[in-house]
């Protein structure tokens, strides 16, 4: 493939996006030191034009997804059908703000196939849940285990798809550090039997107990590690804000490999300030 042809592709893609935009909503940039941008419904704006930080919406298009602010804060996405409606936005990215975070606060399920999907071209990341979606905080380290070149970009497309669902979010944002997350550390970008994996959870507030379960995205199913569904973390000190677990993987209860971010670490923080689990994308490929 020649470089010239590639440039044509880029141009084609941009023109397609440009031609399609009729209305948009704007995200807020740098609302605080930890946040590069945030969409929390406060800045929704339906004016037209292709502007970085706005969500694509084409009224009347049966595959277009509208983002609407909620009066109590946050915003809603509503797909009244199974057309595979989606919205896309161009967002700023920098290596200093690697975490994509969103908080799903509610759903209304409609008849038919139900799915929410979030995807970005950074590392070809997509994450989704089907049939029975789950509320909670979702955290993805977009850059972990990506080549440096891929991590050095300054902007990226972010896309949301919805099928037969209304989904309520408090926010979606890109941050330096998430308030709640668990980090997996492994020397190799692939976790497989024999891998040594350390899990580290750094919390804002102290907690009485922290554990994680590996779950599939899509149809949410548990993945047993070494025959166990739960990985128990222990506090590193009396502050009970940093919790860790380290294990050597002997078995992964998987029928086939799962690519990066297609496995979620469901973190249950007990006795902290959370009332919901935190779902953290595992930025490693899993191979049974």
């Amino acid at each position: 493939m020649g470089r010239l042809a590639m440039k044509k592709w880029i141009l084609t893609g941009l023109l397609m996006a440009a031609g399609a935009v009729m209305a948009s909503a704007r995200q807020r940039v740098n609302p605080d030191e930890n946040t590069l941008w945030i969409e929390d419904g406060a800045g929704v704006d339906l004016s037209g034009g292709l502007v970085s930080g706005r969500w694509l919406y084409r009224p009347g298009d049966k595959k277009s997804l509208e983002l609407r602010p909620k009066s109590e804060g946050g915003f809603s996405l509503f797909a009244p059908d199974g057309n595979g409606r989606s919205t896309v936005t161009r967002v700023k990215v920098t290596p200093d703000y690697p975490f994509l975070v969103f908080h799903i606060t509610g759903f209304e399920a409609l008849n038919g196939y139900r799915n929410w999907t979030v995807g970005t071209e950074i590392g070809s990341m997509t994450t989704c849940q089907v049939n029975s979606p789950q509320k909670g905080y979702y955290v993805y380290d977009l850059l972990r285990n990506l080549p440096e070149k891929e991590a050095a970009r300054t902007s990226a497309w972010l896309r949301l798809w919805l099928y037969n669902l209304r989904m309520d979010l408090e926010y979606i944002k890109l941050v330096k550090q998430p308030d709640y997350a668990v980090r997996a550390e492994c020397a190799d970008p692939v976790i497989r039997p024999g891998s040594n994996v350390k899990f580290v959870a750094e919390l804002k507030e102290e907690a009485e107990d922290v554990s994680i379960r590996l779950m599939t995205d899509g149809q949410v199913m548990p993945i047993r590690v070494n025959g166990e569904m739960k990985i128990q973390l222990k506090p590193v000190d009396e502050t009970c804000k940093v919790w860790t677990a380290e294990l050597i993987v002997k078995t992964l209860d998987l029928p086939k490999p799962r690519s990066r971010h297609k496995t979620l670490m469901k973190m249950d923080v007990l006795g902290g300030e959370l009332e919901e689990p935190v779902w953290v994308g595992l930025p490693y490929r899993l191979e049974p």
């Binding site: 590639m6 893609g13 941009l14 896309v88 071209e121 497309w157 972010l158």
Partner: peptide, 12 residues
């Protein structure tokens, strides 16, 4: 990576 760079509209 080059292919991905070309794909502005969809992430995958």
């Amino acid at each position: 990576s080059l292919a991905l760079a070309a794909l502005a509209v969809s992430s995958t």
